[in-house]
Design a protein around this nucleic acid. Sequence first.
DNA 1: GTCAATTCACATGAAAGAGACCACGGTCTAGTG
DNA 2: CTAGACCGTGGTCTCTTTCATGTGAATTGACGA
Length: 399
Amino acid sequence: MVQQTLGDIFSGYVQKAGAVFSNRNILSHDHMPEQAMHRDEQMQHLATILAPSIQGARPSNVFLYGKTGTGKTLVARQVTKELEKASDRVVVLYMNCKMKRVADTEYRLFAELSRELGKTVPATGLPTDEVYRIFYEAIDSRPQNVILVLDEIDALVRKVGDEILYNLTRVNTELKQARLSMVGISNNISFIESLDSRVKSSLSEEEIIFPPYNANQLKDILSTRAEKAFHSGALGGGVIEKCAALAAQEHGDARKALDLLRVAGEMAERKKEPTVTSGFVDAAEDKLDLDRTTEVVQAQPKQSLAVLAGILKLTDKGEKDIQTGDIFLEYEKISAKCGLKPLTQRRVSDLIAELDMLGIINAKVISKGRYGRTREIRILLARPAVEKIRRVLERNYLV
DNA sequence: GTCAATTCACATGAAAGAGACCACGGTCTAGTG
DNA sequence: CTAGACCGTGGTCTCTTTCATGTGAATTGACGA
């Protein structure tokens, strides 16, 4: 009986899946198209910089920057892939530093890199310099040019500090037969300025800037992908234009444009509509916002949620100018009620700062003169998002 | 009225501790021939 | 004799506490016009 219905659902889904999409994966983040559109200049630039590695010379370190979804990763991956094909002396290590549990610490980064080079390294337990040595030997085991691509390099520096980059830039002086060069990718332009000057000069021997896509370019990109992803005629008029325009408003983020298009398609499919209309794009935009916040909130540890619950409670009371101290008092009550070990104010202050970073709340440091210095905290989100958060908190018995 | 000193309520930094996790090597134990 | 269980040691990682220092404008109080 149940199996029957489940079967129906699935088979219905299989049929429906063909209704709008012909290949949904084309629109996903990890899909790498063969051609990066409107990025020829950057590709050529990067290729010329890295080309000497084919002849065994060490290419300059390069720093790529531009906002999210401007094709940095795509260009870097494509160029390095071709490079690897062109010469067997070139080895490319790609590392996304934002991936949790991969590059949180110096140890993990080197362990992961060594693994990529075919060494086995335990997840913990070894002294850090031991891992460093393993990595070093792995590189120097044969004459080769190792190109290390560090994506989201700012995340790495934030967690580990810039000493690691300094060490990496200096590796060459100790290598006997191999060469190491780095490609740093960051979407934070001011990041490079915050680095130690020694690191700064050696890391950004060359720089390539990725300007945001404009609405027309986004439209091209979307059209090309949509052609393969959707059935012909499944997209209503103006849908692509709308996605492109919305994403262009948000610093020309191609990733966002693709998300919009994909989600709009999914929604149409679920509603069993044969065509995606621009109304679905609006709905998709709302949904993307909402999904992001709930996802972020859900991933928070319980203590952080308790702090958030305190903020929510004070907001419900209609209090304006909520301060760190108020939240701490409220938090203490909540944690006592839930049998949570209360943290110190120092820690709570950090948790508040983290919630601010995540964009869930807005915490501005203000000085109230004689009445001290504190954070003024507000909830940023629209009503539906707040309700979703409340549900997450309820599930954790915090409301 | 002007101006420097004071003061508040935290923010922010640095260092260090606790507890969890993991690898590794040594020792013990049970099973096998 | 050997494989596997078990334990202690030494290392990292994350979260947290403790202690110390910093901060910026309202307020205060001295001073001079």
